[in-house]
Design a protein around this nucleic acid. Structure first.
Length: 494
RNA sequence: GGGCCGCUAGCUCAAUUGGAAGAGCAGCUGACUCUUAAUCAGCCGGUUACAGGUUCGAGUCCUGUGCGGCUCACCA
C-alpha cells in the first residue's frame, strides 16, 4: 500500500533521527564558507600555474549534493552551489569516525559543508579531498532524475525550485532576466532618469484599455483596481517637475492567458520631457542593442528559426503602409467602422460586430502585420481613436504620433508623444467612455484628478512602455512567457 | 470560452489488434582505493489523473470531470 515515495521519505526521516540521536543538529545555523565552488576551481588552477610547490590551502565550501559514487574506500560526491559544481572525494582513511558515519547518512539533495584540500584526479577533475564534513540541511524528498532533469511542464511551473535544481538552462534564463533588468536600470540612470514607484491600487484603472482586477480595502470600504498601467501617475510626476522618470514594475490585466500574456507582468514605462516619439524611438533601439551587448555580448539572438539583429537603426514603417503591404487594406479609405468591417469581411476575416474602427485596425495589425515583423521594426502613426493619450500629428488630425516596436512577431513596446492639452484630453476620454459603454464592458471612470493635474501644465513629453517579459523572451530565445516568469499564473490544483 | 493533444512508479519513459503493468535513474542490501550518467550482484516500488460505462477481459474503446500544452477567440 505504501508508495515508493512514502518509503523513500520514511527512510530519510529514519536517517534524520539517527543523526539527531548522535547529537548532531541536522539543521545548524550557519557555516563559514571560504570559497564558492567556482572560486575553489579557480584557486586550484592558479595554484597549478604558479611555480611554488606549496601545499594546497584548506578551503571550506558548501552546497547541495547532486551525485554520489561510492567506490569501496573512496566515495566521490558532486556538490553544487549557485556558482557551479565541484567534485568531492572522501577517503575512509583520512576521515574522522564521526564524518565517516555521517557520510553514510548523506543523501542526494542534502546541503552539506566540507573542508579539505584541492587536487586534481588522474582524469583531470578538480576535486576537494574532504577532511571534515558538516550536514547543513537534510533533504527528505527525492530530487528529479539526474540525467533527464525535470520535463513535466506543469511540475516545472508549480515547483519551480525543482526546475531550477534539475535544469541548469532554466536557472540561466532567470539569471539573464536579472541581468537584463539591471542593464535597463543602468541605461536609464546613466541618461539622468530617476526611478519612481507609483500606486498599484488605484480608484480608477487608466492609462491603457484593458480589463482590470478589482479588490477591496476594508477600512476605507472602497473598491480599488490593480493598475493596468502606471502611465497617469508618471505623468503627474512630470507635471510635478521631474524631467525624466521611469518605473519598472508589475502591472495587472484581467484577460486571457497565453504564451505571450500573463495576468501580472513586468512593464517599464519612462517619460522624458521636451522629447517626442522620434527621440523615444532612438532611445529604445539604442537601449535594446546595448542590453543585448551587455548581457549576451552580441547584437544578434536566435529566436525560433530566426536570427534577430538588434543593431540600430531599426526600420520605421508607417502603420498605414504596413497594413497595406501585408493585408492590402488601406484604412484611410474606410473612415468609419462599418466600411472597414465590410472590407475585412471581403478577406474572409471573422469580424466581431461590436468592434469600433480602432479595434478593427488593431485586428488587422495582429492578424497580418505582427506575425511578419521578425526583425525589430517600428510601426508609426496610429489612428487617433486607438490612442487617447497621444498627441495628434501636426499635419493629419486622424493620426497620432505613436509607435509600437515589434520583434520576433511580438509587440515589445508602445510609445507616443504625450497629449498635454487638458481640454482635448478630456474630450478624448469622453469619446472613449462612450465607445466602451456601448459595449457594456467595463464602466470606465474618468480620472478627474489626472485631468486636473494636466490643467496645471505638462511640458511636451515623450513616453514609452516596454513589455519586459517579452523582451526577456527575445533575449533568451524562449517561445513562452511562462518560461521567463518564475511563478507563472496557473489554475489551482485540487 | 471553442478546437486539438497529453496525463502510466519519486523522476524519465515503454506496454503490438482490447489479453499477465515493464525498463532506466533514484532508493535499500552487498562487492569495489581515481569515479564522474561509475560498474557488478540482489531487493523494494503502481488508485495507469479522477468518476462512470462497454466488454469474458480496459493503461488501451466510449462519456463526463480535473489539470496541463498548443491554438483560436478575448486582449496589448
Amino acid at each position: 500500500m505504501t508508495s515508493r515515495l512514502d518509503r523513500i521519505a520514511q527512510k530519510r526521516r529514519e536517517k534524520l533521527e539517527r543523526i539527531r540521536a548522535r547529537g548532531i543538529n541536522p539543521y545548524p545555523y550557519r557555516y563559514h564558507r571560504s570559497h564558492t565552488t567556482q572560486q575553489a576551481v579557480a584557486l586550484l588552477k592558479q595554484q597549478e600555474e604558479s611555480s611554488s610547490k606549496a601545499e594546497a590551502p584548506v578551503v571550506n565550501i558548501a552546497g547541495r549534493v547532486m551525485a554520489n559514487r561510492p567506490m569501496g574506500k573512496i566515495s566521490f560526491l558532486d556538490i553544487r552551489d549557485s556558482s557551479g559544481k565541484i567534485q568531492l572525494s572522501f577517503h575512509s582513511d583520512l576521515l574522522s569516525e564521526a564524518s565517516l558515519k555521517l557520510l553514510k547518512d548523506i543523501d542526494i539533495g542534502d546541503i552539506i559543508g566540507v573542508s579539505g584540500r584541492l587536487f586534481r584526479t588522474k582524469s583531470g577533475e578538480p576535486t576537494l579531498e574532504v577532511e571534515n564534513l558538516t550536514l547543513l540541511a537534510k533533504s527528505l524528498q527525492p530530487l528529479p532524475e539526474k540525467w533527464h532533469g525535470l520535463s513535466d511542464i506543469d511540475k516545472r511551473y508549480r515547483q519551480r525550485y525543482l526546475d531550477l535544481i534539475a535544469n541548469t538552462e532554466a536557472k540561466e534564463i532567470f539569471q539573464m532576466r536579472s541581468q537584463i533588468i539591471t542593464a535597463i536600470r543602468q541605461f536609464l540612470n546613466r541618461r539622468g532618469f530617476i526611478e519612481v514607484e507609483t500606486p498599484v491600487l488605484q480608484p480608477s484603472a487608466g492609462g491603457a484599455l484593458a480589463r482590470p482586477f478589482i479588490t477591496h480595502h476594508h477600512t476605507l470600504d472602497q473598491n480599488f483596481y490593480l493598475r493596468i498601467a502606471p502611465e497617469l501617475h508618471l505623468k503627474r510626476l512630470i507635471i510635478g517637475g521631474f524631467d525624466k522618470v521611469y518605473e519598472l514594475g508589475r502591472t495587472f490585466r484581467n484577460e486571457g492567458i497565453s504564451t505571450k500574456h500573463n495576468p501580472e507582468f513586468t512593464m517599464l514605462e519612462s517619460y522624458e520631457t521636451y522629447a517626442d516619439y522620434n527621440d523615444v524611438m532612438a532611445m529604445l533601439e539604442e537601449m535594446v542593442a546595448e542590453i543585448s551587448q551587455q548581457v549576451l555580448g552580441r547584437d544578434k539572438v536566435e529566436f525560433g528559426s530566426n536570427t534577430i539583429n538588434f543593431k540600430p537603426p531599426w526600420p520605421r514603417l508607417e502603420l498605414r503602409q504596413a497594413i497595406i503591404k501585408y493585408s492590402g487594406i488601406d484604412f484611410e479609405k474606410y473612415p468609419d467602422a462599418d466600411s472597414l468591417k465590410a472590407e475585412m469581411l471581403q478577406l474572409k476575416m471573422e469580424v466581431d460586430p461590436q468592434k469600433d474602427r480602432g479595434r478593427l485596425i488593431d485586428e488587422l495589425i495582429s492578424t497580418f502585420v505582427e506575425p511578419n515583423l521578425i526583425q525589430p521594426t517600428f510601426l508609426l502613426d496610429y489612428p487617433v481613436e486607438m490612442s487617447p493619450l497621444a498627441k495628434i500629428k501636426p499635419d493629419n488630425e486622424r493620426l497620432v504620433e505613436r509607435f509600437e516596436a515589434f520583434a520576433g512577431g511580438m509587440e515589445i513596446a508602445n510609445a507616443f508623444t504625450e497629449l498635454n492639452d487638458p481640454i482635448e484630453q478630456r474630450q478624448r476620454f469622453l469619446g472613449q467612455q462612450k465607445e466602451r459603454q456601448i459595449e457594456d464592458e467595463i464602466v470606465e471612470t474618468i480620472d478627474e484628478d489626472f485631468l486636473l493635474a494636466l490643467e496645471y501644465g505638462m511640458p511636451p513629453t515623450g513616453g514609452l512602455g516596454v513589455g519586459i517579459d517579452r523582451l526577456v523572451m527575445l533575449l533568451t530565445g524562449q517561445p513562452s512567457i511562462r518560461q521567463v516568469i518564475l511563478f507563472p499564473q496557473l489554475r489551482e490544483k485540487p
